[in-house]
C-alpha cells in the first residue's frame, strides 16, 4: 500500500485525536488503535497486529512505537512518520503549555482529583490492552502459558523485560509453538 494524501490525512487525524485521549500513556489507547486498524478499517489482521505490537516491544524506546508501526503498515515510511508525529504532537503542545501554569496550582485540590480520577480509568484501559493482545497472541495453551509466566515474572521481579521477550522468542524460534 502506498500513501495517498487522503490516507495520510486520515492517519494524522486519528492519531492526533488519540494523542489527546491517551491518559495513562500509549498503552491505554492500544484497544482503540486495534479497533480502528483491525475491526473498522481492516488495515491488518488480528495476528499481524499482535506481531507488530510484539516488534514494537522488542525495539528500544517508548511504547508509542506501536503507533509508528500501524502507520507504517498503512502507508509505509511516510505513514510511520505521520502516525508518530500525530500521536506525539498534540499532547506535546498541551504539555508544553500546561507545564508553565501547572506549578502555580501545585496544591490545588482539583489537580489532585483529576490525577486520582484518571488513574483507575488508565489502569482499566491498559488491562484491556493486555486482554486484547493476549487474545490475539495466545492461539494455543503454550503461548497462553508464556503470557502468564511473563506477566508473573515482570510483576514480581525487577528484571529487564528483555529477558522475557528474548526467552519467548528463542522458544518460538526453536519450534516450541509450532
Amino acid at each position: 500500500m502506498s500513501g495517498s494524501g487522503a490516507v495520510l490525512a486520515g492517519l494524522a487525524a486519528q492519531f492526533a485525536l488519540l494523542s489527546l485521549l491517551a491518559f495513562g500513556g500509549a498503552n491505554a489507547v492500544v484497544p482503540e488503535v486495534h479497533r480502528q486498524a483491525v475491526s473498522i478499517h481492516h488495515w491488518m489482521g488480528e495476528q499481524d497486529f499482535a506481531a507488530l505490537f510484539a516488534i514494537s516491544q522488542a525495539a528500544p524506546g517508548p511504547n508509542v512505537l506501536i503507533c509508528t508501526l500501524v502507520g507504517w503498515r498503512v502507508a509505509g515510511v511516510a505513514g510511520a512518520l505521520i502516525a508518530t508525529l500525530a500521536m506525539c504532537g498534540p499532547s506535546c503542545l498541551l504539555t508544553y503549555g500546561v507545564a508553565k501554569v501547572w506549578d502555580r496550582h501545585r496544591d490545588a485540590p482539583w489537580r489532585a482529583a483529576i490525577g486520582a480520577g484518571l488513574a483507575p480509568v488508565a489502569v482499566g484501559l491498559v488491562l484491556a490492552t493486555a486482554y486484547l493482545l493476549a487474545r490475539a497472541a495466545d492461539s494455543q495453551w503454550r503461548l497462553a502459558a508464556v503470557t502468564v509466566v511473563s506477566a508473573a515474572v515482570s510483576w514480581i521481579t525487577k528484571w529487564n523485560p528483555l529477558w522475557c521477550l528474548g526467552a519467548a522468542a528463542a522458544l518460538g524460534a526453536a519450534g516450541a509453538f509450532s
Partner: peptide, 8 residues
C-alpha cells in the same frame, strides 16, 4: 513467542 510475552 514475542507477542505472547509482550501481552504478559
Amino acid at each position: 513467542g514475542l507477542g505472547a510475552a509482550a501481552a504478559g
